[in-house]
Structures are given as C-alpha cells and as structure tokens.
Amino acid sequence: MTERPSAFAVDRRGFIRLAGSTAAGWLALGATPDRMRVVASLTVLPLDDELTRRSMTDSATTRLGGLIAGLRQRGWVEGVNYRFEIRSTFGGPDKFKAAVRELIDLKPDVILTGSTGETAAVMAATKTIPIVFATSNDPVGNGFVESLAHPGGNVTGFTSSTAEMGGKWLQLIREAVPDIARVGVLFNPATTPRAGRFFLDSLEQEAAASGVAVVLAPVSATADIDGAISRFSEAPKAAMIALVDSFLVVNRQTIIAATAKYRVPMIYPFHYFMDAGGLMSYGPTLEVRSADYVDLILRGTKAGDLPVQAPRKYELLINRTVGNALGLTIPFTLLARADEIRE
C-alpha cells in the first residue's frame, strides 16, 4: 500500500514573489528574458471548484501546480519570462465558446487542454498554436493526431486510459460485490469518449463472460443523476461504473451523495471521486509530465514531432469505511492489491 505524498501548497501570489526574488538564479538555468511567453490552459471545472483551487497551488501533486513547478525547474519563472493564463469553460455552450475565443485571442505560445471536448474545440479554432492535451483517451480515434508515435500537426499530449479499462472496472467491482446480477454504466454521451463506446465494448465482453447484465445510465444534466443512480438500488442486485467523463468529474459530489443515499456501490476512473467520498477507483497515477512538452515547445520544438505518451502506472484506491457504510465486506484478496486503503 502506498501513501499519496502530502501537498506543499503556496498561494500563487506568494509563489510569484518567491520566483521574482530568485529570478536571476532561474535565468541561469536557461530561461530566456527576450520576451514574455504565454502558457494558456482550459479547465472544465469552475475556477472556484476545490479541484481547480488545489491545482493552482505550487505542488507536484496537482496538474497545474506540477506544470508550474516543472517549468520553474526548467528555467521558466511565472511573472518573469512567461505568464500563465487559465480560463474555465464551465457554464454552458456560450461560456465554452467564449473561453476558447479568449485564449486564442491572447495568441499564446502553447495551450494546455484537459478534456476531449476542450481539445476538439481548440483544434477547431487554431491550426498553428501548439496544443498539449493533458488527458485524452482516444487521440487517434478522435482525429487529434495521425498516430501516437508521429502526431503531426500542432497537437500532442498524454493518454489517460485504454479501451480495455471498461472490462477491468467490471472485474474489480465484481470482486467487491461478487453477487451482482447487473451493472449500471453512468456517463454523459456528449462528454465521454465516443459517446461511451470507447469503454463499452470491453465492458460488455467482460459482462457476457461473467453473466452480468449491462444497463446503460446516460445522463445529460445534473438533475438526471439522482434518478439514474436510484434505479440500481432495487432488485436484482447491482453495482455501477462511472466512465471517464469530464461531466461526471464536475458533478462528483452529486454522484457520491446519490450513491450513499441509495446505497449503490460504484467504481470510478479517477482519485478525484475518492477525495469526494467514493468507494473505489482504478485509473492512471497522476504524473504531471506536461512541463516536459511545454518546455520543449517554448524552446522551438514542434508539437507534432513529440510522441503521445501513455500512463506508466495505474492505481487502485479503496475506501473501507465507505464499503462498510454500504454493507460490503471488501475481500482481503482485493484489499491486498490496493495501492491505497482509506478509512
């Protein structure tokens, strides 16, 4: 069992003051003072969301904090030789379009995207500004890159899951709840890869082999979530799987509250759901490697010449206290394989 390192958080104003006081030292590492570069980023979360606030700290355990810290190690100091701009796409289609337009109008040197929808929107808006996607499940299938090894164009980045994850999630939730007869699949068709089919093929194959019925539970609005989950509190016994989906991440608190209310076990793709009180998650370990690519692009490397990288490690997290509240006895064989057990 491994423990997540504690976050060392510094507010961004304090961080900029610290950076400014040591600018000469960082410039000696290779930063160039000839002009102020612009690194831009989009997030599907509101800017006041807990995950967004946490990400804006100077900590390697958060995506944006890790980016800023990683760039500093490479000689790029925020407020000295580059500035960081972030916009939220949260708030509906008009807000989404406005956020993308605002970033494009800044003429940034590189744009970091965090979801499939964001990457597609930015690609539609520019063919010249380099784009680095921090997470993408199917970059070739979505038309973002020509191939993983040779992306081409102005885009590259990092994948976060494979299509086989659907079957893996079912295997794990069945170990936690071995007597289920059906599994519900929660997702928003508009925001999950290939409207869910990216994961459903392997999930349905695993379900057919294990005799479990797959019941789709698509949701398109926050108000749909409670009813979608309540259906699986009745017989025959069921558990649920949350697909990789930015909509579900935004609404993670609502989802967790409904699973507790209706006592429905659910497995999630990211540790964000565990932080909100989820039962178990299985997904890629958060490795903030985007600083490597942003640095290379700022120094002149073409995004399309940088290969798309896959996760190097996956982690299983289990909350035993949540399991007890749901009336589950998590098998020791499953607990023994967990990277982290929360109480």
Results as ranks from 00 to 15, higher is better:
G277W: 10
L306I: 03
P93K: 08
G153R: 15
A291Q: 12
Y262L: 04
P130G: 00
T333Q: 11
L279A: 09
P236I: 09
I241S: 06
L71A: 11
A149R: 15
T301C: 06
R12L: 10
A19C: 12
D94I: 04
V110G: 00
Q205N: 15
I129L: 04
G65R: 05
V219Y: 02
S136N: 15
I131L: 01
V44N: 12
K261Q: 11
Y82R: 09
R182K: 04
A31K: 15
D49T: 04
R53M: 12
R252V: 06
T285F: 07
L18I: 11
Y282Q: 01
K313A: 11
D245E: 02
R12W: 12
L216E: 12
G143N: 07
S88G: 04
L64I: 13
T116P: 03
F247S: 03
S246V: 03
T43H: 08
T156K: 01
A149M: 13
A125F: 09
L243M: 15
L67H: 07
L172Y: 09
V219F: 01
N324P: 03
V322T: 15
S202Q: 01
T135V: 07
P46D: 02
K313D: 07
R37K: 12
T259I: 06
V214T: 08
S59D: 12
L316K: 05
N137R: 03
T113K: 08
Q73W: 06
T321L: 10
Q309S: 10
G211Y: 07
I129T: 01
G300V: 03
I241A: 04
D58R: 14
T191S: 13
V38T: 13
R35Y: 06
L200H: 01
R289N: 14
M274L: 14
I267F: 05
N154H: 07
W26C: 14
T192W: 00
T159Y: 05
T62V: 00
D224Q: 03
D201G: 03
G278P: 01
S210V: 12
G20Y: 00
V288T: 15
I225R: 02
E287Y: 14
M56H: 06
S160H: 04
L334F: 10
T135C: 00
F247V: 08
R231H: 13
E146N: 11
A310N: 13
Q171A: 08
M240C: 01
I173C: 02
G184H: 04
K302Y: 08
P33N: 09
E175G: 05
D94A: 15
L286K: 06
Q171Y: 09
G152R: 12
T162M: 03
A195D: 09
L67G: 04
V80W: 12
I297Q: 07
K97P: 05
F270H: 05
M280D: 04
A190L: 10
F144P: 10
